[in-house]
Design a protein around this nucleic acid. Structure first.
Length: 603
RNA sequence: GCGCCCGUAGCUCAGAUGGAUAGAGCACUCGCCUUCUAAGCGAGUGGUCGCAGGUUCGAGUCCUGCCGGGCGCGCCA
């Protein structure tokens, strides 16, 4: 049940009737108008700009058209008052019974309330986290991880078929560094004094267990091998260990990916998928041998002018063509990404969503170019060739990039610098252990993803009561407690059976109706948030809903007749319980989208 | 130098894809616990939506140019 769709449908019905009766031309397009809640409550429950939007097409003045629609709607059930206001707004106030019907709908739909089919079952792949498997997750990874996970939940909630994917960057130099670092710990585990960790290797303690495990498995056999002999098996072993650790870290945040795709595996084994993907681009005339210009604003002595294999990403608006092979003949990271997106598209996704950190923005146009090339689409650019959005358009499938601004770390008000090399980083596990999973998740989503986020470790751990997550959870706990107390007032109460038959006309207080209106927003909110790929809207909505609920609750302190439980009036109690149940349901559903617990009690 | 992102109350941020008189939290002031959980509620103070133009019935939202802050810009990953 989406009341906005309901009202829009009724307006469409009125327009159709007007076309039939000849007031409107029969062939004009009726779409493009909005139904929304006016900011000013005195303007009614709903406002529509239908008359202003259609006035040109109809050849009528907005106010005249509004009056005509109004006359048609006034015969409909549910409308208490309709006004034409301002330049031609249609302001509609509904009967209380209309709102009571929504409580019934929430009760009937239960956990399905707020879900929608706007995704139409389209397959969407959400790729997020994709941290290098060279160490544990740190707080910096946290935001993209939680954002991606909540977005995936949201898309699933709104009718998409979602795959959660992690791209393992297990090729290239960094994992070799990992292998050498692990090898050092292996020697250490065998009793050797390795001294300080050399510059350029990872010093973290987390590699000690890896070294010990290597020693246990291989005894001293690796010591006699040359590096090119021991490195591959050590690398493979260390990567597996790091991935286990990362999976554990993610599980601590309640994040589980469906698919892990290995970068290294793309060009390993029988078929070189990187070569396949590049060949596919070559067939489209997008691969050539050539030279790149020296980049501006960069004066590096090591710059080498060299003829190389290039992808013509400038054809899609990228600022330069991109190299696919390094001078040693191995593939670049970008070449792997070409194959990776080729592979994802081959798996039949209609939408690809990648969550990136803001420090990767410079890389994004070329990724868009890959997908545009494979899907026959293009980048979303304006007349001057500048990007209008981080997505491809017009192809058989599209890629959308979500850029998550970095988290700025503070410790007690002072900026806190992290360095994996120096071993001074705050792990995700540290944060979750101290603050708790729910506050971390909520905090990371309680901000638009493009907005920088200040994360004060000390403040968050010491003053976690300030976190809005408790406010929302508390509303849910209070709702649950009402039911416990109701059982005491009416020992034979059976909510499951009685709520469905509640006499909701007993809900007459303006604040009760205001709460229902808030609940009515939920389906529209989730749909809008999903389309905009903005899970933070759900968090803000829940805060707002919780606030409305707390307000109603507290009014019961001063005005006992407004308390939910009225020991002498079972019918009224049951009606209010139906409202409380609906509120509890929406909070619970909303929190589940965010991946946050909805506790029944908080003390 | 170039590209991207951000600029809204003292601070931290929303603003539902262009709607009517711009909102919330924190902070500050004043009230509310014998009573469904005070991790709560009500009221008040606080604004040139960075600046200047433009588009239209209407702009915090779209366009142009500036100013300020952040991130980034080679075969790294």
């Amino acid at each position: 049940m989406n009341v906005f769709d309901d009202i829009a449908g009724r307006i469409r019905g009125a327009l159709a009737a007007l076309s039939t009766s000849g007031t409107l031309a029969a062939d004009i397009d009726h779409e493009g108008f909005d139904v929304e809640t006016p900011r000013d409550p005195t303007h009614g429950d709903f406002a529509s700009n239908v008359a202003m939007v259609l006035s040109k097409r109809a050849g009528m003045k907005p106010r005249d058209l509004a009056e005509a629609v109004k006359a048609r709607l006034e015969g409909e059930r549910g409308f208490a008052k309709i006004d034409v206001a301002g330049p031609g707004f249609l302001n509609m106030t509904m009967e209380p019974a209309f709102w009571h019907g929504l409580v019934v709908a929430v009760g009937r739909e239960g956990a399905a309330y707020g879900r929608s089919d706007i995704g139409k079952g389209a397959k969407v792949n959400v790729e997020y986290v994709s941290a290098n498997p060279t160490g544990p997750m740190h707080v910096g990874h946290c935001r993209g991880a939680v954002f991606g996970d909540a977005l995936a939940n949201l898309l699933a909630f709104t009718g998409y078929e979602v795959t959660r994917e992690y791209y393992i960057n297990d090729a290239g130099g960094q994992v070799d560094v990992l292998a050498r670092s692990a090898f050092l710990r292996y020697r250490e585990a065998l009793g050797e004094d390795i001294g300080p960790i050399p510059e350029g290797l990872y010093p973290g303690e987390y590699l000690k267990p890896v070294g010990a495990a290597l020693a246990k498995t291989h005894k001293k056999t690796l010591l006699d091998l040359r590096e090119d002999e021991w490195l591959p098996p050590v690398r493979e072993f260390a990567i597996a260990a790091m991935l286990d650790m990362i999976r554990d870290d993610l599980a601590a945040l309640n994040i589980r990916h469906d698919v892990f795709t290995s970068e290294a595996a793309l060009s390993r084994g029988k078929t070189d998928k990187v070569k396949l993907a590049i060949d596919a681009l070559r067939k489209k005339g997008l691969i050539y041998e050539g030279r790149l210009e020296r980049p501006k604003g960069h004066d590096d002595e090591e710059w080498e002018d060299r003829e190389q294999t290039l992808f013509r990403s400038t054809a899609f608006g990228d600022e330069a063509d991109r190299a696919l092979q390094k001078s040693d003949g191995s593939y670049t990271y970008f070449a792997g990404d070409v194959a990776y997106h080729y592979d994802k598209l081959a798996r039949g996704y209609r939408h690809l969503v990648n969550v990136f950190g803001a420090d990767h923005v410079g890389y994004l146009p070329r990724v868009l170019a890959i997908v545009a090339a494979f899907t026959g689409g293009k980048l979303d650019v304006d007349a001057k060739g500048r990007l209008r959005s981080w997505r491809t358009v017009g192809g058989s499938a599209d890629l959308e990039l979500k850029v998550v601004s970095l988290v700025k770390l503070y410790k007690g008000g002072e900026p806190y610098k992290m360095s994996k090399r120096a071993g001074t980083f705050v792990t995700l596990r540290d944060v979750v252990d101290e603050v708790g999973r729910d506050p971390v998740r909520f905090m990371m989503i309680y901000r638009k993803e493009l907005e920088p986020l200040d994360f004060d470790f000390a403040k968050v751990t010491e003053q976690s009561k300030d976190n809005p997550v408790f406010y929302v959870q508390y509303a849910h706990a209070r709702a649950a407690s009402v039911f416990r107390n109701a059982k005491e007032a009416f020992s034979d109460l059976d909510p499951g059976a009685e709520l469905a038959g509640a006499d909701l006309s007993r809900l007459t207080d303006p604040d009760e109706l205001a709460l229902i209106r808030k609940l009515a927003h939920f389906p529209r909110l989730t749909a809008g948030a999903a389309e905009a790929r903005e899970p933070h809207r759900v968090a803000f909505y829940l805060y707002d809903l919780a606030s409305t609920f707390h307000g109603l609750w507290t009014r019961g302190n001063d005005s006992p007749h407004l308390r939910f439980i009225q020991a002498t009036d079972r019918s009224l109690t049951v009606a209010r319980l139906a409202l409380v149940a609906a509120t509890r349901q929406v909070i619970s559903s909303g929190l589940s989208v965010l991946g946050v617990e909805a506790p029944d009690a908080m003390r």
